[in-house]
Design a protein around this nucleic acid. Structure first.
Lengths: 80, 80
DNA sequence: TTCGAATGTAAAGTATTTTTTACATTTTCC
DNA sequence: GGAAAATGTAAAAAATACTTTACATTCGAA
């Protein structure tokens, strides 16, 4: 069913509400994406591009790595 | 020639050589991508996905934001 | 100089992200 | 309760990232 899964999760919604109190529409507008894109990313349907991730973090006033959490466990299984 | 493409640049090549002395092939293998992908990204032909960016940074032993540099100037022109 | 490893170019095909459009549900607030 | 704003689902098309394959160039060492 589902599939690949990205090994990335994000805290956009929490930060958006707790820290900046932006609506999805407002965030979308400020980062230059559509509301639908924000919805899908918040719902973890897919990970954003690196550029969009940077823009989101920038607008939220956070570092990329505080907004997006990478789980390297699948990478660990690869060899030296 | 090129087009605007992405507002992201990277220091993969410098870090790859100076810090870890990996070949493109080795880096590609460790991050689970192809050599061609590493070549294109190092050549700034396009930016990696967020996931690949995280993997590259992880393997290089750096933070995402030390490897990939975001220029927010195009974002700044958007309003409040 | 010659071999092999590393780097590079190109192009076609696959996979993933983003937009666009349209409508449904929930929340807020009067 | 009702209107408006905010959030949500869906799906097709467009844009971008990634792979695969094949061949060319550069560079270091034997």
């Amino acid at each position: 069913m589902g599939g690949k899964k990205t090994s990335i999760t994000n805290h956009i919604k929490r930060i958006r509400l707790a820290r900046t109190e932006l609506t999805q529409s407002e965030l979308a507008r400020r980062v230059g994406a559509t509301r639908q894109t924000i919805i899908s990313i918040e719902a973890q349907k897919y990970a954003p591009s690196l550029e969009l991730a940077f823009r989101i973090a920038f607008v939220l006033g956070e570092q990329v790595e505080e907004v997006f959490i990478f789980d390297p466990s699948d990478l660990m299984s690869r060899a030296t």
